[in-house]
Amino acid sequence: MKQLLFILLFTPLLIWSQSNFEKAEKLFHVKKYDEAQLLFEAILKTRPSDIKTIEYLGEIAAYHKSWIKAGEYYKKLKELKPTEAEYFYKYGGALAMRAMEVNKLKAFGLVEDMKGAFEKAIVLNPKHIPARWALIELYLQLPGILGGSESKALSYSNELAALSLVDGYMSKGRIDEYFKRYASAEKYYIKANEIGKSKTTFQKLYNLYLNKLKDPKKARELKQKFESS
């Protein structure tokens, strides 16, 4: 009798929840994020630990640049699924974006959690490339007194090189560009572009020529070559 009562009470609720999830998912995929959010939030009230629902809400919050809310969703995800590298990476990313919006004192207070999240992502997935990029940028941007370190950035760049030659060259170029060693950055970006031949590798080298080396001729020639290839 109790089992029958459970079925009668909760089956309609489960059907409603599943139906709404499918609707919300479709809305999300056609970029109707506000409508999708309302449905996902309603679902979360009945299924507070549903990983996919929380993940979608995190993505919507990130789209709206609501970094506090996004961080809360990703924090919950990494707690619910502590073996998933991507959730730690996204949590760290939300903290990093939040740090860009607040004053320096508050931003520095987020640093350890950021580093911890990115490092954990790498532990869980040793081939995680974006987490290494995030740590490179973090160590470049941080003042030395708070842990900023070119050598640590280079260490992660070397790890990237072992996973992807293009990312290795690109990251070394980024480090040299940050420290205004533009001639050296150019060499690395050229190598990355020769291998990658992508819009990303082209854009990095093009921007270096145009904005840092102030060489419009090289920029123009590179653009012509890229557009004709």
Rank of each mutant, 00 (worst) to 15 (best):
K90H: 06
M170L: 09
L210S: 15
S17T: 10
T53V: 13
R47I: 14
Y89E: 07
E22M: 11
M97N: 13
Y156D: 01
V166Y: 05
Y189K: 07
F108W: 14
M97Y: 09
G148C: 11
L14K: 11
G147P: 05
K180V: 02
E22Q: 14
R98D: 04
D50A: 12
Q18K: 06
Q141I: 00
Y56A: 02
L124H: 09
N125I: 11
L110P: 06
E79F: 07
E25G: 00
L9A: 12
A107H: 09
L4V: 13
Y209Q: 00
F40N: 04
E55T: 00
E186A: 04
G109E: 09
E84F: 01
A70S: 13
P126H: 02
K214I: 00
I51T: 14
L9P: 00
P12S: 01
N158V: 02
A61P: 03
L160M: 11
S229H: 13
L124A: 05
A96Y: 08
R132T: 10
I15K: 00
K212V: 02
N20M: 06
F6C: 05
L14H: 12
L138Q: 04
E194K: 13
A107G: 12
N158P: 03
K120N: 05
K31M: 02
K81E: 01
D167S: 06
S155K: 13
L4E: 14
A42E: 12
E194W: 08
V102F: 07
I43Q: 06
G168H: 02
S151I: 15
K81S: 07
M97I: 02
P12K: 04
Y87L: 06
N125H: 15
Y139R: 04
F88G: 01
Y156S: 06
F108K: 13
Y188S: 06
A192D: 05
S171G: 08
W16Y: 15
F10T: 15
T201K: 10
S198F: 00
S66M: 14
